[in-house]
Amino acid sequence: MLLDETGRAVGTAPKAQVHHADTPLHLAFSLYVFSAGGELLLLTRRAATKTTFPGLWTNTVCGHPGPGEPVGAASARRAREELGLELAAPRLVLPQFAYRAEMGGVVEHELCPVLVVEAPPDAVPSPDPAEVDQTRWVRWADVVEGVRSGGLAMSPWAREQVGQLARLGPDPARWPTADPALLPPAARADQVPGQYS
């Protein structure tokens, strides 16, 4: 979904045609999957064949909702497609995250709400090699410290998100759930029926 500067939908375009040197603003999401209790975060390494930011470590799942698809449902769908994980409904924690980043002449330019969810205790990722080269569980405190020190090389959006998430407190299980009314208009239920639940 392509967006104007206020976050309202202004059209759609195929993903393959959106990411280039002058990428238009569009709607995305980032999902952070934690172990039970929130101590460990499942990091993923983007496949080397990805168009944008290949080979970088990042948060668990990133993606784009389809028109009319709730961001929570889109994140669960992508976790299933990329990692074979069946997850409970995620919680919205950063409804207004936005960023622009460039690598190798390809730009990402997104309004990108951030969601979190706890994985089932028996969850074992089964990565799709077209999407994910590697996974690892890392202590959340180590992720925060690694991003702050520069010792953990991550995608530019994940670096910014980790900084904002750390300000919510040290325990991911206790982060407040954000009001869906703060989502970009294109992702809000009052603008697009069924858009967030």
Rank of each mutant, 00 (worst) to 15 (best):
M1R: 02
L2W: 04
L3E: 13
R8W: 12
A9V: 04
K15W: 04
H20D: 10
T23L: 03
T23M: 02
T23K: 00
P24Q: 02
H26R: 09
L27S: 04
A28S: 08
Y32C: 15
G37S: 08
L42E: 09
L43F: 01
R46C: 01
T49A: 14
T49N: 12
K50V: 09
T52R: 14
G55R: 04
T58A: 14
G63W: 04
G66I: 15
P70F: 00
A74K: 03
S75R: 01
S75I: 07
A76C: 08
R77E: 14
E86C: 07
A89G: 08
L94K: 02
P95K: 02
P95I: 05
A101G: 06
E102R: 08
E102P: 02
E102V: 15
G105N: 13
G105W: 06
V107N: 02
V107I: 07
H109R: 10
E110Q: 03
L111A: 13
C112P: 01
V117H: 00
A123T: 02
S126W: 06
D133C: 03
R136N: 07
W137C: 04
V143A: 06
V144M: 04
E145Q: 14
G146A: 05
S149V: 13
G150D: 03
A153K: 13
V162N: 02
Q164W: 10
R167E: 08
D171Y: 01
P172G: 14
P172Q: 13
L182F: 04
L183A: 04
A187S: 06
R188N: 15
R188E: 09
A189N: 11
V192E: 06
Y196R: 12
Y196S: 09
S197Q: 12
